[in-house]
Nucleic acid binder design. Structure first.
Lengths: 208, 208
DNA sequence: ATGAAACATGAACCAGTATTCATGTATAAT
DNA sequence: ATTATACATGAATACTGGTTCATGTTTCAT
């Protein structure tokens, strides 16, 4: 490992060396995708550059044509995960007027997404240690959007009044943990059932 | 790093070498406590045995008198965290008849706990990669207890009917993410306010 | 007191691995 | 064809850090 003198890690915009050809583009993608699988499976530290490149079917040195550092691929993956999740949920809730319905659709979309991308899901968790800044960005961006949506829904009288900030985090937490139950703890419960129970909690709480 | 051939990691009962003297007891505790601080601050991989022992004020070799491996201290910390959290919450909800009140008290106790032990909190997250089994045990034990409590409350008619399993996970998720907001994202919001909003969500949901 | 067991030390060992580099090969423009 | 540029290679480098070990020192039972 290199220094990393306690201070700020990577993240931000770290272009690495962008490819300038279709061939390069393909290789870069292959490495990125291999990194997702290998890091997702073994974790950041046990995933060596050698593992990643061999999984990608390229030589070890090729890695450094497109990425400046091991940490950088990782950051890129976290960033990608963030974009993908937000995009997926936005897509799924597109055009749904009622916030409660949107909440249900969003939860469903999220759970389906994490089932389809279990590796990315685990990677985000590890970011807390490998690239704290990316981790923060991931959750804060998500929370900000969530909060805005809740506030709008409050104005429209679609949901009750309440602290949108805290609610946003709490609701994120619900999705996150239910997703984890699926992917990490390998629950066999069908998504529709989980969503039904989760939605009921979100909408009505547990008061009798 | 040593092999760890993909298979099951440490966890379970890994006594290491238990000390047989008051002196040894003290040293072992010192190392464990130093490990908590150092690993919590730097993460598992950046926390070297050298860092830990020097923080504990002992020589590097001393570490291996009480622990067989770096992974083992880590597991021990996760286990300890589990016991502490469960104990703290049980204590705080002791004797509270109404489940909704207990829910509020439990959430408060949990948030106060994570504020007091931010290192342990981060350590659990990293366990997903360093010691998956300890991670699973942590959450599954917690969830099992939570679920039992919810089921009992349902029988007693203190809360509405619903899938206790999923509810348990969802409610854990709320606490977890709100705790993270405090410790990781350093929110300055007072715990009482967070609890108030969180509790309202848990009890009543967001339906208008 | 005294020997055995427990505890402590820190230098050395050693394996793993991120990164670099000198040397090729494919590709596109001229 | 020819050449400049992008891409690819894999062996060599350089360094980190977990673990071991031979050698003390303290503690305790007798």
């Amino acid at each position: 490992m290199t220094k990393s003198a306690g201070g700020a890690k990577a993240s931000q915009k770290a272009p690495g060396n962008q490819p300038k050809t279709a061939r390069g583009e393909a290789t870069r993608k292959a490495i990125l995708s291999a990194a997702e699988r290998v890091i997702g499976a073994k974790g950041y530290n046990d995933a060596s550059i050698g593992h990643i490149t061999s999984e990608a079917g390229v030589a070890q040195g090729t890695f450094y044509i497109y990425f400046t550092t091991k940490e950088q691929v990782f950051s890129e993956l976290v960033l990608e995960m963030g974009r993908l999740v937000r995009h997926t949920i936005a897509e799924a809730t597109q055009g749904i007027e009622d916030r409660l319905e949107a909440e249900k659709a969003g939860l469903t979309a999220f759970l389906e997404f994490v089932c389809a991308h279990p590796d990315l899901y685990r990677i985000v968790q590890e970011a807390l240690f490998v690239d704290p800044q990316a981790y923060q960005e991931y959750y804060q961006t998500f929370a900000a959007g969530y909060r805005a949506g809740l506030e709008a829904a409050q104005e429209a009288g679609q949901i009750s009044k309440g602290d949108a900030e805290t609610r946003a985090w709490a609701l994120m937490g619900i999705g996150r943990t239910l997703g984890e139950q699926l992917v990490v703890f390998k629950s066999d419960k069908p998504i529709s059932e989980i969503v039904a129970s989760g939605y009921d909690l979100i909408a009505n709480g547990i008061k009798p």
